[in-house]
Nucleic acid binder design. Structure first.
Lengths: 185, 185
DNA sequence: TTAATTTTAGTACCTGCTACTAATTGTAAG
DNA sequence: CTTACAATTAGTAGCAGGTACTAAAATTAA
């Protein structure tokens, strides 16, 4: 009864591997690949709690569908908390491990920049604006998990040019500050 | 024949919108929402070349199944073409519609910034470095589809501080230039 | 009123299953 | 050797969400 157990387990291990590598595989194909009947495949899936093909596809689809949407929707990086057009705005952003350099666990600069830039765009009362000039200073490296609070302040408006200062804090310490000149188009 | 055409077209327009907003909707649900029979929904889908639910889900799933990794892998934004440590480096980046503002089709500033910053990190011969200060100038808005070429040049090294200039061109026109002070840690 | 378009109805069949019953094969222990 | 039990295979009914097709009914335009 030892040899049989091993055979079964080995098959189920293979089954898991095949499905992980290709969630789009049918029971029929699995039955071919593992040289057992389709019923055995189904018993194995049940035992392992692996859902059927259509459900697997749906899971993959929904996971990524939401990711893509939130990514493309986020014209504002972070969440806008307060906005007074042409004056000031506040947003927050929760940092996570997807934003860091592997080596250092420090949040990549462009995420912080994106937060600042998008807030400075939001605070401007213009249909469309682009970034013209930016001066940035990173004071303290930000670690994954820290909550960032960005405050934007419009300091000057000259025709179609908007001068905006953005300060970003993590627990009351300033980690970043910047000046932007935005141009309305 | 004008009123009917409009009714049909209006329904098909709605149908397209509903499915675009939620590809996971069944014909049955569409039939409910649009107050027509399921056969009409199916005729409409055929006419419009919209595949059935299961096919739509599969497409969404497959499209994104591969994408996830390439995104998280890219520590260098763009492709590194040439590198001479502590001296100079060149990278290219193909822009696409996922990088633009919907309204204007202009590439978001932080993508260009990310390209410049990551190249300036790459050119430095240090285990770990962080961005200290950056001065940016966006000369010309970049449109989706344009190929960006970034050139980095190390101009000065002071103890643990590296001064790097990065210029980004799109078909021989300078669209962006920047100065970074990177700090080795 | 006639002809054409649009919509609805209904049937057979498809894929990739679940849920279930039952038979067969293997295997090891008494 | 046979009894007991696990493992495998076989087969059927039913389901979701369709396709493909035929045909009738309703609407509308000419």
């Amino acid at each position: 009864m030892l040899k049989t157990k091993t055979a079964k387990q080995a098959r189920q291990d293979q089954l898991i591997e095949i499905i992980e590598n290709d969630p789009f595989v049918t029971d029929d194909s699995l039955s071919d690949q593992l040289k057992v009947s389709i019923q055995t495949i189904r018993l194995d899936r049940m035992m392992l709690g692996i859902p059927e093909l259509r459900t697997r596809i749906k899971v993959v689809a929904k996971e990524n569908y939401n990711k893509v949407r939130t990514l493309s929707q986020s014209e504002i990086v972070g969440e806008l908390l307060d906005l007074e057009l042409n004056n000031r705005a506040i947003s927050v952003l929760d940092t996570d491990v997807s934003m860091v350099f592997e080596k250092t666990q420090i949040v990549k600069g462009h995420h912080i920049f994106a937060m600042a830039e998008s807030l400075s765009l939001a605070v401007i009362d213009a249909e469309v604006a682009i970034t013209g000039v930016a001066n940035l200073k990173y004071n303290i490296p930000v670690k994954a998990g820290e909550k960032l609070v960005a405050k934007a302040k419009v300091t000057q408006i000259k025709e179609n040019e908007y001068y905006v200062h953005v300060f970003i804090n993590a627990h009351d310490e300033q980690v970043f500050r910047s000046k932007f000149i935005m141009k309305a188009v």
